[in-house]
Design a protein around this nucleic acid. Structure first.
Length: 268
DNA sequence: CTGCCCCTGTAA
DNA sequence: TTACAGGGGCAG
């Protein structure tokens, strides 16, 4: 479900739907959803707080609450968030926060991998520090990317997935960026030429900007599934199918325990 | 660095 | 029945 574009779309919609509302009560169905405290303690800390705004940092959904607290929600693989009438809550909902207007924020998470945590101001800024650069920020420049790549021997794909360097890229968009830039996923980051770095940088920004737009427009209604494969995927999940540039069969290899799709002819 | 784990769902 | 799934934390 969510890489940067989908998380961004969720945050914007949640902001539209819930900013200014107050959380009246919070319910959880599983103890592992809340970290590090129990659902009970967690719910007690949330009750009565107003949601000032909802924004994104890396793949985290951040709800800024009154009293200088931040609710951090990580959707992991299958999480989703929306605001709706309690009557429409799905059976896979793992948490819901009743709002002062009778609607509720629903945290849907079939695979139970998602996590949430309450941060005080200090921890919120510490988290911000630990995370890498936002790829759509002005600070993310070709020179900066080149400098970081220089210091890493990781394969390019693994380098792009590392959230302490650049945030927001996941398995789909990392593969897409490498394909667009014609960079081999196994090439060590420090072996990339300046020209390849420039292409990679441009590809990351273009691809993500376009995907954010599509994801936001697509995520209009509460409870909709987040589908990134629908918009502009050129290599991901296309093993054996012809490369869109040269017709060579797309290959799949495992890197860091995950599938990487690439064109063995145009990416090297 | 890779491998395993957290979980459930779906498809081959 | 097995493999795999858009994430990430941890062990070895």
């Amino acid at each position: 479900v969510p890489e940067l574009p989908e998380v961004e779309a969720v945050c914007r919609r949640l902001h539209e739907w819930a900013a200014g509302r107050t959380i009246v009560a919070a319910r959880f169905t599983r103890p592992q959803t809340t970290r590090p405290t129990s659902p009970r303690t967690f719910a007690r800390r949330l009750a009565g707080r107003q949601i000032d705004r909802v924004h994104r940092r890396a793949k985290n959904v951040l709800l800024a609450l009154t009293g200088d607290l931040t609710l951090r929600i990580h959707l992991r693989m299958t999480g989703n968030l929306w605001v709706d009438d309690p009557a429409n809550r799905p059976s896979t909902a793992r948490a819901w926060f009743t709002l002062d207007d009778g609607r509720e924020i629903v945290f849907d998470d079939p695979r139970l991998l998602g996590r949430m945590e309450i941060l005080d101001a200090g921890r919120a800024s510490a988290l911000d520090q630990e995370l890498g650069l936002e790829p759509l920020s002005d600070a993310f420049t070709p020179a900066w990317l080149a400098e970081r790549a220089q210091r890493s021997r990781k394969p390019a794909k693994v380098f792009l997935l590392d959230q302490s360097i650049v945030v927001g890229l996941g398995n789909i968009w990392a593969a897409e960026a490498l394909f667009a830039a014609r960079v081999a996923p196994a090439a060590p980051a420090n072996s990339l030429k300046p020209r390849q770095i420039r292409h990679l940088h441009a590809a990351i920004q273009e691809i993500l900007a376009r995907a954010v737009k599509s994801a936001y427009e697509q995520y209009r209604a509460p409870g909709q599934t987040l589908e990134s494969e629908g918009y502009g995927v050129a290599v991901y999940n296309r093993e054996g199918l012809p490369c869109l540039r040269c017709r060579t069969a797309i290959a799949r290899v495992a890197q860091a325990g995950r599938s990487t799709y690439f064109c063995p002819r145009c990416q090297r």
